[in-house]
Simulated assay, not measured.
Amino acid sequence: MRQLILGGVRSGKSRLAEQQARERSLQTGYPVTYLATARAGDGEMARRIEQHRQHRPDDWLTLEIPDARLPAQLQQLLQQPGVILLDCLTLWLTQVLCEDLADEEALSEAALQRVDQLLDELVAVVSAGGVADLILVSNETGLGIMPLDALTRAYGDRAGLLHQRLASVCERVIFTVAGMPLVVKGSGFNELY
């Protein structure tokens, strides 16, 4: 089962994903691997990361992969029985987009093509699937206004297209609002797994 859980900041999407991973692990006896994509760039982000760590059971394996290694690592993990929780795709996209782009002048077509190639690789890995269950978490950023700067527009375009592409290959898509799940695609919330 591949599923994509979308929602805004503090919408409850991570909590829902963790609950589902826990339940699936109990049902199958398979271990949970948590793929963390965040980097602690400041104290506030470090506190958020620590809060997420505290919510996870001690027996979950956590791999921190905030860079271009993510598609290859995910591909390997999908080939083993287990439950994979990847949180968060938009944080990962931000980091890979900004790695080479220190300022707006660096926003070259070549740099964007490198990011697009990486997104293509990720979508191909998720499309191919494997034997592991996969839960993807991402921020829905396309509900606001169009940003004025080129880098933020490039990010918004890529995040939106990534979500569309992943939603088309996932068996379930859930949008989370105020801690409440809305099943957009797939079986209903009460029928999870």
Rank of each mutant, 00 (worst) to 15 (best):
M1W: 04
L4G: 08
I5D: 07
G7E: 05
R10K: 15
K13A: 13
E18N: 11
A21R: 08
L26E: 15
Q27G: 06
Q27A: 15
V32C: 12
M45V: 06
E50M: 09
Q54M: 02
R56I: 07
W60P: 05
T62H: 11
T62I: 10
L63K: 14
R69P: 11
A72V: 12
Q75D: 15
L78E: 09
Q80C: 08
P81M: 04
T94P: 02
V96P: 07
C98N: 14
A106L: 15
S108P: 04
S108V: 03
A110R: 13
L118K: 07
L119T: 01
E121R: 14
V123H: 06
V125P: 11
S127A: 13
G129M: 07
D133V: 00
L134V: 05
L134F: 05
I145C: 03
D149G: 02
T152E: 03
D157F: 07
A159L: 03
G160R: 08
H163M: 08
R165T: 05
A167F: 11
A167W: 13
S168N: 12
I174R: 07
V177E: 10
A178G: 02
M180C: 06
L182Q: 15
V183K: 02
V184T: 08
G186A: 01
E191R: 09
E191F: 01
E191D: 07
Y193N: 10
